[in-house]
């Protein structure tokens, strides 16, 4: 068995069936949203494969549905996407083979998104180097596959789906995100950024609605780092 096969097998076997199911249902919710906002199925599918970031896709389709101009939509989507920068910086060093950046690293980064990030960060660092990228792409294939299925299904059943059921599907995403983040957490230092970021969000949503995520992330993450990690990090550097 090649490494690629082994990585793919591992991804499909023990990777996260519950996250895949949630993601699929979340994209059903997205398909319903696209249908309601006058977006074509082709465009909906395009965003699932070539954006592959549900919050950004929802923002884009929401902007289109409100007849916003391109530049306003671009600003809104970019601001929603800023989270992908620190997420990529945290994940890619584990996937990288050597010191140089290869084209495949850029391809891998295109799929960085909350679900894939959560599921990769809890497994990839503990895998042997040779298996990391194959496992990551196996996980990607599975998650992008179920997302595509969900998008099509949601679009097609949109007319027949009661609004409360559609709402319950959209509701699954934040619930899973929170559980996925805390499932990785062991020490106080792991729980701190989750709770501080979550707690600060309403304040920044009120203060600066468009920069709320960036500010909650920067301030919340830095506070949590200074309180819980700086001491252990500097101790490790001295030792």
């Amino acid at each position: 068995m090649t490494r690629t096969e082994a990585g793919f097998r591992m991804a499909f076997r023990d990777a996260a069936r519950a996250p895949a199911a949630v993601l699929c249902l979340s994209f059903v919710g997205f398909g319903v949203l696209c249908h309601g906002n006058g977006v074509s199925l082709a465009f909906a599918l395009y965003t699932t494969i070539f954006m592959y970031a549900l919050p950004g896709q929802v923002t884009l389709v929401d902007q289109i549905g409100r007849d916003m101009p391109l530049w306003t939509a671009a600003l809104a989507v970019s601001l929603t996407g800023v989270r992908l920068l620190p997420m990529t910086i945290a994940l890619v060093p584990y996937l990288r083979g050597g010191r140089e950046t290869r084209p495949v690293d850029y391809l891998a980064s295109h799929f960085v998104s909350v679900t894939l990030w959560i599921e990769s960060m809890r497994r990839v660092p503990f895998l042997p180097r040779g298996l990391r990228l194959p496992f990551y792409f196996g996980l990607t294939a599975m998650l992008v596959g179920v997302s595509t299925l969900g998008t099509v299904a949601g679009y097609l059943i949109a007319d027949r789906l009661p609004p409360i059921v559609a709402a319950s599907l959209i509701f699954l995403t934040p619930v899973y995100f929170f559980m996925g983040l805390s499932a990785n957490a062991r020490a106080a230092a792991d729980f701190a950024p989750i709770l501080i970021g979550f707690g600060m969000a309403p304040f920044f949503m009120w203060l600066t609605p468009s920069l709320d995520l960036v500010l909650s992330g920067l301030v919340g993450g830095t506070v949590s780092f200074l309180l819980f990690r700086r001491k252990s990090a500097s101790r490790a550097e001295k030792a």
Binding site: A90, P174, F178, A201, D212, L218, G220, G221, F225, E237
Partner: peptide
């Protein structure tokens, strides 16, 4: 340490996204 900080910022950002 830099990556630990970046990880905390990402985590807080995702948590804020959940709140939103």
């Amino acid at each position: 340490a830099v990556i630990l900080w970046v990880k905390d910022v990402s985590t807080a950002l995702v948590a804020a996204l959940i709140a939103r």
